[in-house]
């Protein structure tokens, strides 16, 4: 089964480590504005949620790309832009419903900044201290969540009986 990136906002402490290690990996510097994952902060409620490419099954960016530079890599589950083919028309950026494609670099040497799941070993997942980001087969990740909930239900039932 194809792996996928799963976000668990309840575990996010808002530390932004994901943004820092992402920009280091892909841009060679610490720069959240170029990170492929963005921590969105709701300060009044003190809630933070990491947002990144959902690697859609039917990616609108792929549909919109006039030169066919965007493909879904079935092995790692990532929607990937081929920089060699990309002509920089920004169509993908315009149609992405999640808003997770942006431009990086100077105007003469720019490239798209979009999550490629680090070729199957996402740095953000590796470094996330709270475990808010997970990468794996969805059935396995969700199985762990189900098990946790089942344990909780079991305790409740045992208490009640």
């Amino acid at each position: 089964m194809q792996k996928t990136l799963l976000i668990n906002p309840k575990k996010c402490t808002g530390c932004r480590t994901c943004e820092l290690v992402c920009s280091l990996e892909h841009e060679g510097e610490f720069n959240p504005s170029l990170s492929r994952v963005t921590m969105i902060n709701f300060p009044e409620e003190i809630v933070t949620i990491p947002v990144t490419c959902f690697h859609c099954q039917e990616p609108s960016c792929r549909q919109a790309c006039p030169v066919g530079a965007i493909e879904k890599d079935d092995e790692i589950g990532a929607v990937v832009i081929d920089d060699n083919q990309c002509i920089g028309c920004n169509m993908c950026l315009m149609v992405c419903p999640i808003g997770v494609i942006s431009m990086a670099g100077s105007s003469s040497k720019s490239h798209h900044a979009k999550c490629n799941l680090c070729d199957g070993e996402p740095e953000c997942v590796d470094f996330c201290p709270g475990g808010a980001l997970e990468y794996g087969r969805p059935d396995e990740v969700l199985w762990e969540r189900k098990k946790k909930m089942a344990k909780h239900l079991r305790n409740l039932l045992e208490e009640a009986i």
Binding site: T13, L20, P129
Partner: peptide
């Protein structure tokens, strides 16, 4: 309610 971390912090003492 929850823990909160500063930027880049794995501890989250807030």
């Amino acid at each position: 309610v929850k823990n909160k971390a500063c930027a880049g912090c794995p501890i989250g003492c807030g």
